[in-house]
Amino acid sequence: MSNAVSALNSASFEGFATVTETGLRGMITLRGDLSSAKLKAAVKAATGAAIPDVRRVTTGKDGMAAWMSPDELLILCDYASVNDTIATLTAKLTGEHALAVNVSDARAVFRIAGDGAREVLAKLAPVDLSAGAFQAGDFRRSRIAQVAAAFWLNDDNSFELVCFRSVAQYVFDVLKVSAQPGGEVGFL
């Protein structure tokens, strides 16, 4: 098999915040009844994470779970262990109306770090990104300029953002423009 590469091969840009494509990441779309005990146990077994509340992310020792919709989670894990994680989920969900699908190669992940990170995103998404409104562990599906994206805030005050791989270059370009030195708004 050929070597897997991420959309932009870990490209990075240093502006008033740092924008980096974070390389290969395991990503799984998990659909099912989020209130079911079986699904809860499956996510716990696969990632160590609890089922996140609405618009939140949770972290476990082997991965993260993000709230995508009332019947959908995004599971994040190491790229290398994604098949094992799916195998665990699927085994634990036997008999349950649920589905776990590997979407790792259909997506790209960016990290936006630095003091101006909130502003870089706030210029591109119709979301209140003030410190009081958007806190560590918060997760939001929205748009970045003209394309769909989802992002969350880590404990270290960096954002991570997921978009479709086909628009990775576009998203990187608009993030770069937004983080251009001299473009600081100084509001957030």
Binding site: V54, R55, P126, R140, R143
Partner: peptide, 9 residues
């Protein structure tokens, strides 16, 4: 999802 979504979302 409880979001106050503006028109473009």
């Amino acid at each position: 999802c409880g979001v106050d979504a503006e028109e473009t979302e």
